[in-house]
Design a protein around this nucleic acid. Structure first.
Lengths: 130, 130
DNA sequence: GCAATAATGATAATAGTATATCATTATCGT
DNA sequence: ACGATAATGATATACTATTATCATTATTGC
Protein backbone atom coordinates (compact mmCIF):
# COMPACT_ATOMS: atom_id res chain seq x y z
CA UNK A 1 0.00 0.00 0.00
CA UNK A 2 2.32 2.69 1.13
CA UNK A 3 1.60 5.69 3.28
CA UNK A 4 -2.16 5.47 3.32
CA UNK A 5 -3.24 2.28 5.01
CA UNK A 6 -6.67 3.54 5.99
CA UNK A 7 -9.18 2.93 3.23
CA UNK A 8 -12.34 4.77 2.41
CA UNK A 9 -15.10 2.24 2.19
CA UNK A 10 -18.69 2.74 1.19
CA UNK A 11 -19.87 1.82 4.68
CA UNK A 12 -17.48 4.19 6.39
CA UNK A 13 -18.80 6.97 4.21
CA UNK A 14 -22.38 5.92 4.85
CA UNK A 15 -21.76 6.09 8.59
CA UNK A 16 -20.26 9.55 8.39
CA UNK A 17 -23.18 10.69 6.28
CA UNK A 18 -25.60 9.28 8.82
CA UNK A 19 -24.12 11.51 11.49
CA UNK A 20 -23.94 14.53 9.22
CA UNK A 21 -27.57 14.20 8.23
CA UNK A 22 -29.01 13.35 11.62
CA UNK A 23 -27.51 16.39 13.31
CA UNK A 24 -28.13 14.85 16.70
CA UNK A 25 -26.38 12.25 18.86
CA UNK A 26 -26.93 8.72 17.58
CA UNK A 27 -26.87 5.36 19.26
CA UNK A 28 -25.12 2.53 17.38
CA UNK A 29 -28.45 0.96 16.39
CA UNK A 30 -29.62 4.29 15.00
CA UNK A 31 -26.39 4.65 13.05
CA UNK A 32 -26.99 1.21 11.62
CA UNK A 33 -30.46 2.11 10.40
CA UNK A 34 -29.46 5.45 8.96
CA UNK A 35 -26.27 4.20 7.35
CA UNK A 36 -28.15 1.43 5.62
CA UNK A 37 -30.07 4.03 3.67
CA UNK A 38 -26.83 4.96 2.00
CA UNK A 39 -25.35 1.53 1.66
CA UNK A 40 -27.50 -1.52 2.20
CA UNK A 41 -25.93 -4.36 4.06
CA UNK A 42 -23.92 -2.43 6.60
CA UNK A 43 -23.36 -4.66 9.61
CA UNK A 44 -23.58 -3.68 13.24
CA UNK A 45 -19.98 -4.74 13.81
CA UNK A 46 -18.85 -2.29 11.19
CA UNK A 47 -20.86 0.41 12.87
CA UNK A 48 -19.17 -0.20 16.19
CA UNK A 49 -15.75 -0.44 14.57
CA UNK A 50 -16.17 2.82 12.73
CA UNK A 51 -17.65 4.65 15.68
CA UNK A 52 -14.62 3.58 17.64
CA UNK A 53 -12.30 4.72 14.89
CA UNK A 54 -14.08 8.03 14.45
CA UNK A 55 -13.90 8.67 18.17
CA UNK A 56 -10.20 7.83 18.14
CA UNK A 57 -9.52 10.27 15.35
CA UNK A 58 -11.57 12.96 17.05
CA UNK A 59 -14.38 13.19 14.53
CA UNK A 60 -16.92 11.75 16.96
CA UNK A 61 -17.44 12.21 20.65
CA UNK A 62 -19.35 9.95 23.04
CA UNK A 63 -22.47 11.26 24.75
CA UNK A 64 -23.46 9.33 27.81
CA UNK A 65 -27.10 9.29 28.80
CA UNK A 66 -28.62 8.40 32.18
CA UNK A 67 -30.00 4.89 32.07
CA UNK A 68 -29.56 4.43 28.34
CA UNK A 69 -27.01 3.32 25.79
CA UNK A 70 -24.26 5.71 24.81
CA UNK A 71 -24.77 8.00 21.84
CA UNK A 72 -22.15 9.63 19.66
CA UNK A 73 -22.11 13.05 18.10
CA UNK A 74 -19.88 14.97 15.75
CA UNK A 75 -17.11 16.50 17.83
CA UNK A 76 -16.14 20.12 18.06
CA UNK A 77 -19.47 21.68 18.92
CA UNK A 78 -19.51 24.39 21.51
CA UNK A 79 -20.67 23.64 25.05
CA UNK A 80 -24.23 22.41 24.98
CA UNK A 81 -26.59 19.94 26.57
CA UNK A 82 -29.20 17.43 25.53
CA UNK A 83 -32.89 16.73 25.37
CA UNK A 84 -34.27 13.22 25.47
CA UNK A 85 -37.77 12.42 24.31
CA UNK A 86 -39.66 10.25 26.77
CA UNK A 87 -41.64 8.72 23.93
CA UNK A 88 -39.16 7.78 21.22
CA UNK A 89 -35.96 7.97 23.25
CA UNK A 90 -34.19 10.09 20.69
CA UNK A 91 -31.56 12.49 21.92
CA UNK A 92 -31.37 16.05 20.62
CA UNK A 93 -28.94 18.89 21.04
CA UNK A 94 -29.91 21.91 23.06
CA UNK A 95 -28.20 25.19 22.39
CA UNK A 96 -26.57 27.01 25.22
CA UNK A 97 -26.12 26.07 28.84
CA UNK A 98 -28.77 26.09 31.52
CA UNK A 99 -26.37 26.06 34.44
CA UNK A 100 -26.36 29.70 35.37
CA UNK A 101 -24.97 29.06 38.80
CA UNK A 102 -23.32 25.94 40.03
CA UNK A 103 -25.02 24.51 43.07
CA UNK A 104 -22.93 24.74 46.19
CA UNK A 105 -20.76 21.68 46.58
CA UNK A 106 -20.13 19.88 49.85
CA UNK A 107 -17.11 21.12 51.76
CA UNK A 108 -13.85 20.06 50.18
CA UNK A 109 -15.30 19.01 46.85
CA UNK A 110 -13.91 20.32 43.59
CA UNK A 111 -15.99 20.63 40.43
CA UNK A 112 -14.60 20.15 36.96
CA UNK A 113 -17.66 19.94 34.75
CA UNK A 114 -21.33 19.23 34.49
CA UNK A 115 -23.99 17.59 32.36
CA UNK A 116 -27.54 18.72 31.90
CA UNK A 117 -30.43 16.78 30.43
CA UNK A 118 -33.91 17.99 29.68
CA UNK A 119 -36.69 15.46 29.29
CA UNK A 120 -40.05 15.74 27.64
CA UNK A 121 -41.68 15.13 24.30
CA UNK A 122 -40.14 15.97 20.98
CA UNK A 123 -42.12 17.60 18.20
CA UNK A 124 -42.43 14.39 16.25
CA UNK A 125 -44.01 12.64 19.23
CA UNK A 126 -46.55 15.31 20.12
CA UNK A 127 -49.84 14.32 18.50
CA UNK A 128 -50.64 17.00 15.99
CA UNK A 129 -53.45 19.15 17.36
CA UNK A 130 -55.18 20.02 14.13
CA UNK B 1 -48.98 -16.36 59.42
CA UNK B 2 -52.03 -14.21 59.02
CA UNK B 3 -52.11 -10.58 58.02
CA UNK B 4 -48.42 -9.89 58.01
CA UNK B 5 -46.75 -11.95 55.34
CA UNK B 6 -43.77 -9.65 54.94
CA UNK B 7 -41.07 -10.51 57.42
CA UNK B 8 -38.36 -8.36 58.86
CA UNK B 9 -35.08 -10.09 58.35
CA UNK B 10 -31.65 -9.14 59.59
CA UNK B 11 -30.45 -8.58 56.04
CA UNK B 12 -33.41 -6.41 55.12
CA UNK B 13 -32.69 -4.26 58.15
CA UNK B 14 -28.99 -4.18 57.32
CA UNK B 15 -29.80 -2.93 53.84
CA UNK B 16 -32.06 -0.19 55.11
CA UNK B 17 -29.39 0.85 57.58
CA UNK B 18 -26.83 0.97 54.79
CA UNK B 19 -28.91 3.56 52.97
CA UNK B 20 -29.69 5.52 56.10
CA UNK B 21 -26.03 5.73 57.05
CA UNK B 22 -24.61 6.41 53.63
CA UNK B 23 -26.87 9.39 53.01
CA UNK B 24 -26.07 9.26 49.32
CA UNK B 25 -27.24 7.19 46.36
CA UNK B 26 -25.83 3.67 46.42
CA UNK B 27 -25.17 1.13 43.71
CA UNK B 28 -26.12 -2.47 44.50
CA UNK B 29 -22.49 -3.44 45.00
CA UNK B 30 -22.05 -0.60 47.47
CA UNK B 31 -25.17 -1.68 49.32
CA UNK B 32 -23.72 -5.15 49.55
CA UNK B 33 -20.51 -3.92 51.12
CA UNK B 34 -22.20 -1.57 53.54
CA UNK B 35 -24.94 -3.99 54.55
CA UNK B 36 -22.37 -6.64 55.33
CA UNK B 37 -21.02 -4.46 58.10
CA UNK B 38 -24.31 -4.91 59.85
CA UNK B 39 -24.93 -8.53 59.00
CA UNK B 40 -22.13 -10.61 57.56
CA UNK B 41 -23.10 -12.99 54.82
CA UNK B 42 -25.62 -10.85 52.99
CA UNK B 43 -25.77 -12.06 49.40
CA UNK B 44 -25.96 -9.92 46.29
CA UNK B 45 -29.24 -11.56 45.28
CA UNK B 46 -30.79 -10.44 48.53
CA UNK B 47 -29.55 -6.94 47.89
CA UNK B 48 -31.20 -6.82 44.47
CA UNK B 49 -34.38 -8.35 45.82
CA UNK B 50 -34.67 -5.89 48.64
CA UNK B 51 -33.79 -2.90 46.52
CA UNK B 52 -36.57 -3.95 44.20
CA UNK B 53 -38.98 -4.35 47.10
CA UNK B 54 -38.00 -1.05 48.67
CA UNK B 55 -38.49 0.73 45.36
CA UNK B 56 -41.88 -0.92 44.98
CA UNK B 57 -42.99 0.22 48.40
CA UNK B 58 -41.70 3.73 47.74
CA UNK B 59 -38.92 3.77 50.30
CA UNK B 60 -36.21 3.86 47.65
CA UNK B 61 -35.99 5.63 44.34
CA UNK B 62 -33.73 4.83 41.39
CA UNK B 63 -31.09 7.34 40.35
CA UNK B 64 -29.80 6.90 36.85
CA UNK B 65 -26.30 8.05 36.06
CA UNK B 66 -24.78 8.76 32.65
CA UNK B 67 -22.63 5.84 31.62
CA UNK B 68 -22.76 4.07 34.94
CA UNK B 69 -24.83 1.55 36.85
CA UNK B 70 -28.03 2.70 38.50
CA UNK B 71 -27.94 3.93 42.06
CA UNK B 72 -30.75 4.08 44.59
CA UNK B 73 -31.54 6.66 47.18
CA UNK B 74 -34.06 7.12 49.95
CA UNK B 75 -37.19 8.55 48.41
CA UNK B 76 -39.00 11.70 49.39
CA UNK B 77 -36.17 14.17 49.23
CA UNK B 78 -36.88 17.52 47.69
CA UNK B 79 -35.75 18.33 44.18
CA UNK B 80 -32.00 18.02 43.99
CA UNK B 81 -29.20 16.87 41.72
CA UNK B 82 -26.03 14.84 41.97
CA UNK B 83 -22.28 15.01 42.03
CA UNK B 84 -20.13 12.18 40.80
CA UNK B 85 -16.48 11.88 41.75
CA UNK B 86 -14.25 11.18 38.78
CA UNK B 87 -11.83 9.30 41.01
CA UNK B 88 -13.91 6.94 43.12
CA UNK B 89 -17.13 7.06 41.16
CA UNK B 90 -19.25 7.70 44.23
CA UNK B 91 -22.41 9.69 43.77
CA UNK B 92 -23.38 12.44 46.20
CA UNK B 93 -26.42 14.59 46.66
CA UNK B 94 -26.27 18.26 45.84
CA UNK B 95 -28.67 20.63 47.49
CA UNK B 96 -30.81 22.86 45.39
CA UNK B 97 -31.15 23.14 41.66
CA UNK B 98 -28.71 24.69 39.27
CA UNK B 99 -31.17 25.11 36.43
CA UNK B 100 -32.04 28.74 36.79
CA UNK B 101 -33.36 29.07 33.29
CA UNK B 102 -34.32 26.28 30.99
CA UNK B 103 -32.47 26.39 27.72
CA UNK B 104 -34.69 27.17 24.78
CA UNK B 105 -36.10 24.01 23.28
CA UNK B 106 -36.41 23.32 19.58
CA UNK B 107 -39.70 24.41 18.05
CA UNK B 108 -42.57 22.15 19.03
CA UNK B 109 -40.79 20.39 21.88
CA UNK B 110 -42.32 20.16 25.33
CA UNK B 111 -40.25 19.82 28.49
CA UNK B 112 -41.33 17.90 31.54
CA UNK B 113 -38.23 17.61 33.67
CA UNK B 114 -34.49 17.73 33.84
CA UNK B 115 -31.44 16.13 35.39
CA UNK B 116 -28.22 17.82 36.35
CA UNK B 117 -24.91 16.22 37.20
CA UNK B 118 -21.77 17.88 38.45
CA UNK B 119 -18.46 16.09 38.07
CA UNK B 120 -15.20 16.57 39.85
CA UNK B 121 -13.29 15.26 42.84
CA UNK B 122 -14.86 14.53 46.19
CA UNK B 123 -13.19 15.55 49.43
CA UNK B 124 -12.05 12.02 50.17
CA UNK B 125 -10.23 11.81 46.85
CA UNK B 126 -8.45 15.16 46.99
CA UNK B 127 -4.95 14.49 48.31
CA UNK B 128 -4.67 16.27 51.61
CA UNK B 129 -2.51 19.36 51.14
CA UNK B 130 -0.87 19.44 54.53
C1' DG C 1 -5.72 -5.12 -13.87
C1' DC C 2 -3.20 -7.03 -10.14
C1' DA C 3 -1.76 -8.00 -5.72
C1' DA C 4 -1.27 -6.79 -0.96
C1' DT C 5 -4.01 -6.21 2.74
C1' DA C 6 -7.47 -3.21 5.20
C1' DA C 7 -12.19 -3.61 6.04
C1' DT C 8 -16.33 -6.03 6.16
C1' DG C 9 -20.16 -9.21 7.72
C1' DA C 10 -21.83 -12.97 10.33
C1' DT C 11 -21.55 -14.58 14.49
C1' DA C 12 -19.19 -16.17 18.61
C1' DA C 13 -17.43 -14.42 22.75
C1' DT C 14 -17.22 -11.23 26.50
C1' DA C 15 -18.54 -8.07 30.11
C1' DG C 16 -21.50 -5.96 33.21
C1' DT C 17 -25.85 -5.94 35.29
C1' DA C 18 -29.94 -7.94 36.85
C1' DT C 19 -33.29 -11.79 37.50
C1' DA C 20 -34.69 -16.81 38.18
C1' DT C 21 -34.14 -21.20 40.48
C1' DC C 22 -34.32 -23.96 44.41
C1' DA C 23 -32.82 -26.26 48.48
C1' DT C 24 -32.09 -24.43 53.07
C1' DT C 25 -32.82 -21.11 56.81
C1' DA C 26 -35.20 -18.06 59.73
C1' DT C 27 -39.31 -15.31 60.95
C1' DC C 28 -43.46 -14.74 63.48
C1' DG C 29 -48.46 -15.70 64.63
C1' DT C 30 -50.20 -19.00 67.34
C1' DA D 1 -41.66 -24.02 70.97
C1' DC D 2 -44.02 -25.17 66.67
C1' DG D 3 -44.99 -24.95 62.05
C1' DA D 4 -46.29 -22.65 57.78
C1' DT D 5 -43.92 -20.28 54.63
C1' DA D 6 -41.38 -15.90 53.44
C1' DA D 7 -36.72 -14.88 52.69
C1' DT D 8 -32.10 -16.08 51.94
C1' DG D 9 -27.66 -17.57 49.57
C1' DA D 10 -25.33 -19.74 45.95
C1' DT D 11 -25.43 -19.99 41.50
C1' DA D 12 -27.41 -20.50 37.01
C1' DT D 13 -29.58 -17.91 33.64
C1' DA D 14 -30.96 -13.88 31.00
C1' DC D 15 -30.12 -9.62 28.85
C1' DT D 16 -28.03 -5.87 26.71
C1' DA D 17 -24.21 -3.67 24.88
C1' DT D 18 -19.84 -4.17 22.94
C1' DT D 19 -15.68 -6.55 21.25
C1' DA D 20 -13.17 -10.50 19.06
C1' DT D 21 -12.73 -13.98 15.43
C1' DC D 22 -12.01 -15.18 10.85
C1' DA D 23 -13.09 -16.31 6.25
C1' DT D 24 -14.43 -13.31 2.49
C1' DT D 25 -14.67 -8.91 0.03
C1' DA D 26 -13.16 -4.64 -1.70
C1' DT D 27 -9.89 -0.72 -1.85
C1' DT D 28 -5.79 1.37 -3.52
C1' DG D 29 -0.90 2.03 -5.10
C1' DC D 30 1.43 0.42 -8.70
Amino acid sequence: MGIRDIRNTRQKTAIREAFAEADRPLAPEEVLRLAQRHHRGVGIATVYRNIQALVAEGWLQPVEVPGDAARYEVAGKKHHHHFQCNECGKLYDLEGCAAQSRPKLPKGFRASGHKFYVYGTCAACIPSHS
